[in-house]
Design a protein around this nucleic acid. Structure first.
Lengths: 193, 193
DNA sequence: GTCTATAGCCTGATAGAC
DNA sequence: GTCTATCAGGCTATAGAC
């Protein structure tokens, strides 16, 4: 077993942070080593190279994302309340999404080993959202005409795109405006009590 | 004046394409030179360096985006029809947005000269969408309770985020699902004739 | 397991010929 | 204006000591 602060763990955590901040092509192994405070020997002992360490880093970020989404969506309340809690939860907006960002990285996009954990994480969140909508429809809280899968894609896209707008203009409010607009549209789909 | 096929133009076009494909940190000057078919002398004669050429490339991509958005949004039809035409226009989904992608590039995000044309392009499209919604509300085609600026941010975010989901899963349908969900929500906000 | 030293290649930019 | 030659420095990986 490993302790929580061994070199391997420090490498994965440092890589995960740098992937979020700078992406894969923008992150060099030496930058990871500096942040982790270990030498090159540790990196190439535990991993075959940069890509291998990045896979571990992406998995770590994916777990963080999946966990946070589940916490917001799995709690009590009506379908609308659960979606609202998910959409309004505290976020470091200008840092963007640690997983969504990976899709814009040319080397991640073209390497299945790097892209797959990204795909799984986003598909998982999407399906969790769709399940909440289906439950809402079954309970009569949500109009039935809307396809849960489509709506789930819309909701997750609004978040991912909200980060894009906010980062473009260095203005968190663009993210919050997109969420407000979506919530207003969703309220129109809540069936009257 | 310059002809349409001189070295300067070829450099800007090549940089614009590579920025779309690989982003700023993922694009080297030599890759641009190879694609443009010119030598280094041309680059450093017309531009001060990589960043300077990238500013020109981003401006070129921004113009393309702004032009395409205006064409879809400025035509005839009700507000909903114009938004639908904009949302459903032909796109090379898996290539993503040539401007939105820039927001994930660490060096673009932290350099105002590179980020500003990105901010202006997305803000311009956002405002054009908001104007369509305002017109629709004034004509009684759209419910008035919705804030045009918020809704415009939601619409543009859905597109930007749709690209993210599609690229993550290598599946255009994720983009189209997000658009379908948004259009369904928007239809609920169209006032009956 | 972790370190330092080393290697070959690429990056971004400059110099100077034409 | 455009070319080729050249440069210092960083990138990713390997070697071998401890």
């Amino acid at each position: 077993m490993t302790t929580a602060n061994d070199a391997r763990t420090r490498l994965v955590e440092s890589m995960a942070d740098l992937l979020w901040e700078r992406g894969y092509v923008g992150t060099s192994p030496s930058a990871v080593l500096n942040r982790a405070g270990v030498g090159q020997g540790s990196l190439y002992h535990h991993f075959t190279g940069k890509a291998d360490l990045a896979v571990a880093g992406i998995h770590r970020n994916a777990d963080t994302l999946t966990q946070a989404a589940r916490e917001a969506l799995d709690g009590p309340g009506t379908a609308y309340e659960r979606l609202e809690r998910f959409l309004l939860r505290d976020r470091d907006v200008l840092r963007g999404c640690r997983i969504g960002r990976m899709t814009q990285d040319p080397d991640v996009f073209t390497d299945d080993l790097l892209r797959q954990p990204v795909a799984e994480a986003l598909a998982g969140v999407r399906k969790t959202i769709a399940a909440v909508i289906e439950q809402g429809q079954a309970r009569g809280e949500f109009v039935r005409g809307l396809a849960p899968d489509d709506l789930a894609a819309t909701i997750l896209s609004t978040l991912q795109g909200g980060y894009v707008l906010a980062r473009a203009e260095l203005d968190e409010q663009q993210f919050h405006a997109a969420v407000r607009g979506l919530l207003a549209l969703l309220r129109g789909s809540v069936t009257a009590p």
